[in-house]
Amino acid sequence: MTDSGLNPVLAAKYQQLQAFFAPLDRVLIAYSGGIDSTLVAKIAVDVLGDLALAVTAVSPSLLPEDLEDARHQAAALGIAHEEVSTQELDNPNYSSNPVNRCYFCKSELHDTLKPLALDRGYPYVVDGVNGDDLQDYRPGIQAAQERGARSPLAEVGLSKLEVRQLSQYLGLPWWDKPAQPCLSSRFPYGEAITPEKLQRVGRGERYLRTLGWRNLRVRSVGDTARIELPPDQIQSFVAAIDLPNLVAAFQDYGFLFVTLDLEGFQSGKLNRVLGLSPTVNSSPVE
């Protein structure tokens, strides 16, 4: 470790991130409130002050509590924060849930952010894509690049683990926040996505979190809710949960059946149909 508290490789990447923002006049950050875009916002505001603006896209695929987190974190960072509505669900190329659904999501996002940035005098739009994302199936990255967005974390090769390490070093209390991709990622490809389906998934995940389960997914497969938890938590979950009450709650949300995935939580599990291996993800700190 260096005197700064960072290992030399991470310290160098941190300096590169600061240098990325230094020559920019004004920058708009596509800011979801996740750990990646929040780190980008932190470094941007540290370097540019009030010349940095964080903008959150609000749609049915964003949990209300995630929006509240984004607001709270932006306020804590001291960065200007705005919200815009996006209408990706109005696009059948998105709502039909093809394998490249994320391309149409990010197209809608950046087609909304780019004119906003130019109108406000922000010549640059950046996002929170990290180096590990480039190794995964992320068709949305192409859509962002086509619209001129840049990804400073990926450009300096910052991994997901390094994002968390740097966030912890910078004193961000949410450094170990579980990843929370949009709710549309809970549906198998080809299953149509509707606001009602998104709402019932969101309500199911919110219910489980109120019971103390932090790192999880509720996958929606037809009328079945499939709960995923880290493998080492499955036995304690079954022992601790009032299963009849859980089933009743999920049925009240609109599901007919409730199951527990015995393999456990793995990010990207639904990508198996594409011949891609999911990422084992049994810890809140990814």
Results as ranks from 00 to 15, higher is better:
84 V>S: 02
85 S>D: 05
85 S>Y: 05
87 Q>R: 15
88 E>C: 02
89 L>S: 00
91 N>A: 06
92 P>R: 08
93 N>R: 15
94 Y>N: 01
95 S>D: 07
97 N>C: 10
101 R>K: 04
106 K>Y: 02
110 H>A: 05
111 D>I: 08
114 K>E: 12
115 P>D: 04
116 L>H: 05
117 A>W: 08
117 A>C: 08
118 L>R: 10
119 D>Y: 05
121 G>D: 03
122 Y>F: 15
123 P>S: 00
125 V>T: 06
126 V>N: 09
126 V>T: 01
127 D>C: 08
128 G>C: 10
130 N>G: 14
130 N>V: 13
133 D>K: 04
133 D>R: 00
133 D>G: 06
134 L>P: 12
135 Q>T: 15
138 R>E: 02
141 I>C: 04
141 I>V: 15
145 Q>I: 11
146 E>W: 01
146 E>C: 00
150 R>A: 06
155 E>Q: 13
155 E>M: 13
156 V>W: 10
157 G>F: 12
158 L>Y: 12
161 L>F: 13
162 E>K: 12
162 E>I: 10
163 V>K: 04
163 V>G: 11
165 Q>A: 14
166 L>F: 11
171 G>F: 01
172 L>A: 03
172 L>N: 03
174 W>Y: 15
175 W>S: 12
178 P>Q: 12
180 Q>Y: 13
